[in-house]
Design a protein around this nucleic acid. Sequence first.
DNA 1: TCTGATAATATGTGCAGACATATTACCAGA
DNA 2: TCTGGTAATATGTCTGCACATATTATCAGA
Lengths: 233, 233
Amino acid sequence: MTAGEFKNWQAVQEEVRRRIHARIWAPGEMIPNEQDLAEEFGCARATVNRALRNLSEAGLLERRRKAGTRVALHPVRKATLSIPMIRKEIEDLGQSYGYERLFYRRGTPPEALLRQLKARENDQFVRVKSVQTADGAPFVFEDRWVNLTTVPGAAEQGFAETSANEWLLTHAPYTEGDIAFFAGNASEEVAGMLRCEAGAAIFVIDRVTWDNDRSITSVRQYFRPGYRMQTSI
Amino acid sequence: MTAGEFKNWQAVQEEVRRRIHARIWAPGEMIPNEQDLAEEFGCARATVNRALRNLSEAGLLERRRKAGTRVALHPVRKATLSIPMIRKEIEDLGQSYGYERLFYRRGTPPEALLRQLKARENDQFVRVKSVQTADGAPFVFEDRWVNLTTVPGAAEQGFAETSANEWLLTHAPYTEGDIAFFAGNASEEVAGMLRCEAGAAIFVIDRVTWDNDRSITSVRQYFRPGYRMQTSI
DNA sequence: TCTGATAATATGTGCAGACATATTACCAGA
DNA sequence: TCTGGTAATATGTCTGCACATATTATCAGA
């Protein structure tokens, strides 16, 4: 059990996992320091460090200098969900992807949105509405504002043929973003776009992205009724 | 610019980020190998490795042995959202937390759920329904099945005073889980529990967890109307 | 031209040692 | 008793080196 056969960091990580899981090290409890573990496992401290650091990033351990390492009391599980790139999602379903731009006009976003975007005085914006379809049926309806001042290329692009999301991904990298998921009843407009009943429950994503402190885009995506966003943890 | 002042991995990471961002290294393009970068930055290869590995985990780079490192064409942004522990979420809002068990009875889940749980022949289950409140108002209504065979302590516990989620977190650690987010129209039961109109759009989370291949619990949580799940990316 | 063995190469990881840094514990002095 | 300085300590990270491993490129032989 305590022989020195944990020679790589994955093995060390698995052994630590096992001990936490088997409650040999109970939640909230301190575990031995890296040096001792390294001796026990018969490996270098760096190897133990790598394993423990990984588990700490995963939320299973809490580490603080000098204070030591303890088993997390409330393992904050982190679900990493990839921001859906719609075309890929639809194609992975084996369905044919379609895109249609419905609306494109320069204008000024409402006051509240400007604040959220941390927009500057003379920023110019364009509003783009579009639907993306799977086998011809509406999949997502999106309503987006793009900051033309920070993304000048967007003006020529126009998003008539390619979805803004896709174009922006490769042409306007962002450094930060906020994202929110919620449920909403379909308005008349949304219901019309998604070809469903008004009032149907719709899964909605709000997303805002910045390049450092310069806003790039703000988008609200309405998914077709029944859409499920899934992941493993 | 190319002087050797990138002595720690964070600095290297930032410099690489900057170059990707400034399109010195464009999407899809190969970047120099670790050895060359180490020489350029005036640090050890391990330091460069740490930085690049981190960026690769973040989805900005794609690395393959021998093939080298390239800038990701479609940076798959990963939003890491912590699975909400309701009590903490409510208390962080500065509101008073409440819990009430509404239903507790042994029984057998429907066939479809049993399959999803990968349940075994003689597994015993208990169904628990409860609400959690913020300042007295309903916040979440949840409908849960707990596997008593894998979590025997659950039978004595009963979840009369503490939410199942909280108790399970510290008493039945899980190794894997599936989670899904979607929107649904409130049924009569849900509307009654959340004190809203039937048909209101409700944000719903389905979650199933396992301890290795032994199912622990399956839960569906209905959040109060207007609930938003937020995170940064 | 095709196929399979082999060499070349970039990343992945291990080790030992060193120093950096945050944080705690302790103790002297007011 | 309280306070501020100092020592002790666990983690954080860098270095230089080595070898492992996956993958590609190459080339000989059929």
